[in-house]
Design a protein around this nucleic acid. Structure first.
Length: 466
RNA sequence: GGGCCCUUCGUCUAUCGGUUAGGACACCAGAUUUUCAUUCUGGGAAGAGGAGUUCGACUCUCCUAGGGCCUACCA
């Protein structure tokens, strides 16, 4: 084993938003670096200038920082290192480990078809040919071995063998002089001192080719671990129809970053029976070799369960800010009187919520303004008898301290004095105070509204025409 | 077509040759209850199929089936 301190990296290509699978890859890299006391780096793979956008770079950075995955050094932009990449290719060329290939796109196409039909990898005739016109348009290809095999000791999958003949001579430098991904990753990972490459499963085939390139340079091959992709609930590749792909969407859906970290870490990795754990525990326990080999499906139910847990633990002021944002985005105005009590209200109401959106929903009855329109069910409950009973209850409410225990005791006692069950007036009171719809239990309802508002709403209802 | 990878309850996972195959989410039932929710208790639920190795396989090997990734002058 290498005595070098561990260096991991996350290397997204900025062609879109930060995918949830990529986010998990980044998380695993950070976790592993922390676990080993190493460093976690970030590199933007923007060698393809056509497809890379600044908006995507921003989206990725934003997604990562929201998730709480932050590199231990300034991010490296691969594009800026093109000169170094070219220099490296020239090195390979000089060493006879690469060659100029003058195949045209059309020729390549025909060869590819033929190769595919025969089930073999494509090989350029220019491997061993000297060009008549060296300056004609060409690419530079890696000169891979034709014999032997390349063995990958994958950290998560175990030993994987490739026959070198199956690996084609990939392009290192394009005809316009731009380096390609497979060359750039190797050079950059080497230059950045990366010791452990933890990346998506979709790179295993590249891993073999890259290993060959490392060897051609005479560099130490880093340890590699290929983690499976995240699938949608139906097992298919995660896509729009599954609800969300980008981490930003999860944020908008009311999930907390710490909940996402916990859920994502647990997806495809486990530590005994532990389901909920802190970041410190995660980095203490996490090891790439424990990552599960098979792809995992995104389970909204479990994510909701985890998020609910962190919502309960979260600071109410923080939640208030989050919920306010949700409300504002919905175009709802929060009365000045409520703003000051928002975090207290959230403390009262966040109990069963799975997302901050749920909390915002649960606030609906508080946000209503008097006089409230009563739903049909509540109206039906307001018989003369119930009205009289509620009038008597009004006095009790006015005389009871607004504390949970006192309120609960008062309600029970009132039912006793009246000689009826709570069911005889509870639903009506609930309807009057909330205006119908989803609402918490009576004591919480009263507490949320406060004495003044509760009494006023009750009064409004009792004064209404029968 | 070729190469490579994957396969334990519906889902995420534990097990690292010997377990009544454990836990969590979800689900079902019951309890509590002023709706929904919460909470509590209980319950059903799994080793893809077939060979082999072994005293003994979920665990090791092979085959089959199913799924996935790659097969670019994309990353």
């Amino acid at each position: 084993m290498s005595p070098r301190p561990v260096v991991t990296r996350f290397a997204p290509s900025p062609t879109g938003f930060l995918h949830i699978g990529g986010a998990r890859t980044a998380l695993f890299n950070q976790l592993y670096a922390r676990h080993t006391g190493g460093r976690f780096l970030l590199r933007v793979e923007d060698t393809d200038r056509e497809r890379s956008t600044e908006a995507a770079v921003a989206a990725i950075f934003e997604g990562l920082s929201w998730l709480g995955v932050t590199p231990d050094a300034e991010p490296v932009f691969q594009h800026a290192r093109a000169d170094r990449h070219r220099e490296a290719v020239m090195e390979l060329l000089a060493a006879g480990r690469a060659y100029r290939c003058y195949l045209t796109v059309a020729e390549l196409e025909t060869m590819r078809e033929a190769a595919r039909a025969e089930g073999r990898a494509i090989r350029s005739p220019w491997r061993d040919r000297t060009p008549n016109e060296p300056d004609a348009p060409h690419v530079i290809r890696f000169k891979g071995p034709l014999e032997g095999e390349t063995v990958l000791n994958d950290l998560v999958k175990g030993e994987i063998r490739f026959r070198n003949i199956e690996l084609d001579d990939l392009v290192l430098l394009r005809s316009d002089g731009a380096p390609t991904y497979n060359l750039a990753v190797v050079v950059d990972d080497h230059d950045m001192g990366v010791t452990h490459i933890i990346r998506g499963d979709d790179h295993v085939n590249n891993a073999a080719r890259q290993t060959l390139i490392y060897q051609a340079f005479g560099w130490e091959v880093p340890a590699m671990g290929h983690i499976p992709l995240i699938h949608g609930p139906d097992g298919a590749k995660l896509s729009k129809r599954h609800g969300a792909q980008a981490v930003g969407e999860f944020a908008d859906m009311g999930y907390l970053p710490e909940a996402m970290r916990n859920y994502l870490t647990r997806l495809g990795w486990g530590h005994g029976d532990d389901e909920i754990f802190t970041d410190a525990q995660a980095s203490a326990w996490f090891d790439v070799t424990d990552v599960v080999k098979s792809p995992a499906r995104l389970d909204w139910q479990k994510l909701g369960f985890i998020n609910a847990h962190y919502l309960k633990e979260a600071d109410n002021d923080r939640l208030a800010a989050l919920v306010t944002r949700v409300l504002t985005a919905r175009g709802e105005t929060v009365p000045a009187e409520v703003v000051g009590r928002l975090s207290a209200l959230i403390g009262l109401l966040k109990e069963g919520a799975k997302t901050t959106l749920d909390i915002a929903d649960s606030l609906a009855f508080v946000l209503k303004t008097r006089p409230l329109a009563l739903d049909e069910r509540t109206q039906g409950l307001l018989t003369p008898e119930t009205r009289q009973r509620l009038a008597r209850l009004q006095d009790q409410i006015a005389a009871t301290p607004f504390e949970r225990e006192a309120l609960e005791a008062m309600i029970r006692a009132f039912a006793g004095t009246e000689g009826v069950g709570i069911g005889k007036f509870g639903p009506a009171l609930r309807g009057i105070l909330s205006g119908g719809g989803v609402a918490p239990d009576l004591a919480t309802l009263l507490l949320s509204l406060g004495r003044e508002e509760s009494l006023a709403r009750l009064n409004d209802a009792l004064l209404r025409e029968a």
